[in-house]
Design a protein around this nucleic acid. Structure first.
Length: 744
DNA sequence: TGATCCAGTTTTTTT
DNA sequence: AACTGGATCA
């Protein structure tokens, strides 16, 4: 008898016990979906007598997978170890590791991160002799990724190409894919795509997995893309014991190919699907939930649902505007310090922002006050130069097929093998139809002159390392590698601070390697370099959050998804920052709705206290912008903002009259607390709001878009929103302050 | 070959 | 502001 059902509400219990057939759980923020999923697994095992290894739980991030793992382990105990809890990507790697040869890849395939992709793409574009200004890696890769997510191959892409550029991209796409294959490498999209292909071409393999995974659960289903949908559909097979959990209001990864239709039309894709809505929120106060509901209600085409809570009203929502980002950071960090003194833990606080670049100012303040914090996101640990270098060595030692890795380290540390030499080796390889690494081993045939010896020495070094690898344990080998390559020595020549930091990172990498070895041995497997490299490729910093010590967290709104904090500061709440400038100027409704969902996600992270902040002036990419309060703030009913509503109204009205003081709506955060720094409330006279020198109907010229005619001009707070019909670029809306238009 | 300076660029979010 | 690639010079 599974007696834990009474720990759940009726809806949750219904979701837990509905185990057969397709099930869609629409789980609002904070409605206990992880709880439902974990209890459901426990129910399957304890009540239904299902074996753990017949259960598959898929999440999106490693963080979510780790969280799920620990909760399942806690609930079920040792038996839970048999359950596959994995991200889509990690699952695919695991499957491909066993079957990659069936689809024409080595077992020791590489996985390319964004950085590697760019390097490879740069090579491809260079080889095709294309104008690197016309075809920039970023743009081309974005197009290709979008195509892959929709399962459009190079051939189909070519057929559908609407113009010359797209035809060219189709050709680049082809070459890029070929290059990946030559390197025995997958990019992130390929991991999913090739696994799907494996299932399609090897029905026996698919049948094995279908038989193995009799119960499938997918978390954050609203973020799945087409390929992921197909994978899930294939795995579910005829049994269709597929339970997906999601919230269309929290779909924030469209840019990555997420297709919201997957969740909106789940019932059509899986006829007979049951739908259960979880609408009771256990996380937040009423005020917070009201704010979230108010904001999200501005979006169209949502699945109907209304979150409620019996947690009580709670504190009002705080909103503060500051002169600039530095003051914003100062105030927020001061507030945290004050509350810490009053007994809170640092781990109760999170500072959220739209873009990683905004973290800097907060970091400075946190460092200044010695407040422990963890910066989530930003530069990924595994993306650091020294880490990538060492990984590239390991890859090369392991297979040599990965040319991107090989070229990365052939001259690091410097051994006098320059571009010219590399070019010669490359064309030799091409002429003789051999790999780049094989060409190295025949250095003397290439005619490299003085460089021959250097290339030979490098090839010999790799050869020698390979021998050592089989002779000593992996972790000893790691140290040996750093010595033998001279890498450690090169680092030591750097400036002290720099050297220490990088060496720390390499020590960190070593401990990750040691962790891996331990885990493999615990699982009774022989540790292998291949497995380590493949695991590592999917790990991000986001995974490293741990509960052991007390620190506060800084991260993007995206990074915050799935997490909760007692106190949440949503910073940079300005039009142009959040929602972003691009979203505003594009005028794309869907894009704006995605930003709004992101705002919804941010608000619903807060349990007890939500504070919104913004700055009047913000420095972005070296330019100062004068900012209006985010439209999302205006979508929250004034009644929710603290006691001093009148001040808030007044401020909105007075905004364009350049009120010089920051204002507050919440008496709790007093001026003394906020601006205790003597020089704080600096006076600025803001030049914005001055009427531009041109009028509607004037001809103007923009540095970016060329000439055009002004068709509209709307006064909006600190700036004028100008609409211009450009002769070449079409109609653009922009703020006068950054449009830099001049009358002609 | 390598160092250094200059010019141009920057979708924002992540597996 | 920060970073990159390219060009130029030693």
């Amino acid at each position: 008898m599974f007696d834990r059902l009474n720990e759940l509400n009726d809806r949750q219990a219904a979701a837990v016990t509905c185990t057969e057939g397709p099930l869609l759980i629409l789980a609002g923020a904070g409605s206990g979906k992880t709880r439902v999923l974990t209890y459901r697994m426990a129910y399957l095992i304890d009540e239904k007598g299902e074996a753990p290894w017949h259960i598959l739980a898929i999440t999106f991030t490693n963080k979510a997978a780790a969280e799920m793992r620990s909760r399942v382990d806690g609930l079920i105990g040792p038996a839970a170890a048999g359950i596959w809890v994995s991200t889509f990507h990690a699952m695919c790697v695991r499957i491909l590791r066993l079957h990659s040869e069936r689809v024409g890849y080595d077992r020791s395939f590489s996985i390319y991160d964004t950085d590697d992709q760019r390097t490879l793409m740069r090579q491809v574009i260079k080889e095709m002799d294309l104008d690197s200004k016309m075809y920039r890696e970023r743009g081309v890769l974005a197009a290709i990724s979008a195509a892959k997510n929709q399962m459009i191959g190079p051939e189909e892409y070519a057929e559908e190409a609407a113009d010359f550029r797209e035809e060219m991209i189709a050709r680049i796409y082809k070459r890029y894919n070929d290059a990946l294959r030559d390197n025995q490498a997958f990019d992130f999209d390929d991991l999913l795509l090739v696994t799907l292909k494996l299932f399609e071409t090897c029905p026996d393999v698919l049948a094995d997995y279908q038989d193995r995974f009799r119960y499938i659960m997918v978390d954050e289903y609203q973020d799945t893309n087409q390929v992921q949908f197909r994978l899930v559909e294939a795995l579910a097979g005829d049994r269709k014991n597929l339970c997906v959990v999601g919230d269309d209001d929290q779909s924030i990864y469209k840019f990555r190919g997420a297709d919201i239709r997957n969740i909106l039309s789940f019932e059509e894709s899986f006829p007979g699907a049951k739908v259960i809505k979880l609408e009771q929120n256990y996380r937040s106060t009423e005020h917070i939930l009201d704010a979230a509901n108010a904001v999200i209600s501005n979006n169209e085409g949502r699945k109907d649902k209304k979150l409620w809570t019996d947690n009580g009203e709670g504190e009002p929502i705080g909103f503060y505007q500051f002169e600039d980002g530095a003051q914003e950071a100062f105030a927020v960090v001061s507030d945290i310090a004050t509350r810490k003194k009053e007994g809170a833990s640092y781990s109760d606080f999170a500072i959220l922002y739209r873009t990683n670049a905004q973290s800097r100012l907060f970091e400075e303040q946190l460092v200044r006050r010695s407040i422990p914090y963890k910066l989530v996101g930003g530069v990924n640990f595994y993306a650091r130069r020294e880490v990538k270098d060492v990984l590239a060595y390991l890859k090369t030692i392991e297979s040599g097929r990965d040319e991107v890795a090989l070229r990365r380290i052939i001259n690091v540390p410097r051994r006098g093998i320059g571009d010219t030499t590399i070019g010669k080796i490359e064309s030799f390889a091409r002429v003789h139809m051999i790999g780049f690494y094989q060409a190295l081993e025949r250095a003397e045939e290439i005619g490299l002159g003085r460089s021959t010896a250097k290339v030979r020495a490098f090839a010999f070094l790799i050869q020698q390392l390979r021998e050592k690898l089989s002779e000593m344990p992996l972790s000893d080998f790691y140290d040996y590698l750093l010595e033998a390559t001279g890498y450690r020595e090169t680092l030591e020549e750097l400036e002290e601070h720099e050297a220490v930091e990088r060496m720390d990172n390499l020590d960190e990498l070593k401990s990750k390697l040691a962790d891996y070895i331990n885990q493999a041995e615990l699982a009774g497997q022989e540790p292998s370099l291949t497995d380590f490299l493949q695991d590592v490729a999917l790990v991000t910093d986001l995974d490293a959050l741990d509960e052991s010590s007390d620190y506060m967290v800084l991260m993007t709104l995206h990074g915050a998804k799935g997490l909760e904090f007692a106190n949440v500061y949503m910073t940079g709440m300005e039009d142009g920052t959040f929602p972003g400038f691009m979203t505003i100027t594009s005028g794309d409704r869907e894009e704006m709705e995605e930003e709004r969902r992101l705002c919804y996600v941010g608000i619903t992270r807060a349990m007890k206290r939500l504070v919104l902040t913004c700055a009047k002036r913000r420095m972005t990419r070296g330019e100062t912008h004068y900012c209006n309060i985010s439209r999302f703030v205006a979508e929250i009913p004034f009644a929710l903002f603290g006691n001093d509503k009148s001040l808030f109204y007044a401020q909105r009205r007075e905004e364009r009259k350049e009120r010089e003081h920051s204002f507050r709506t919440d008496k709790e955060m007093t001026a003394e607390k906020l601006f205790s720094k003597p020089k704080a409330p600096k006076q600025f006279s803001v030049p914005a709001g001055t009427r531009p020198s041109y009028e509607v109907g004037d001809r103007v010229v923009s540095a970016k878009f060329g000439e055009g005619t002004v068709t509209a001009m709307v006064e909006g707070g600190r700036d004028y929103e100008v609409t211009v019909d450009f002769d070449d670029a079409g109609i653009k809306k922009m703020f006068a302050a950054f449009a830099r238009l001049s009358k002609i």
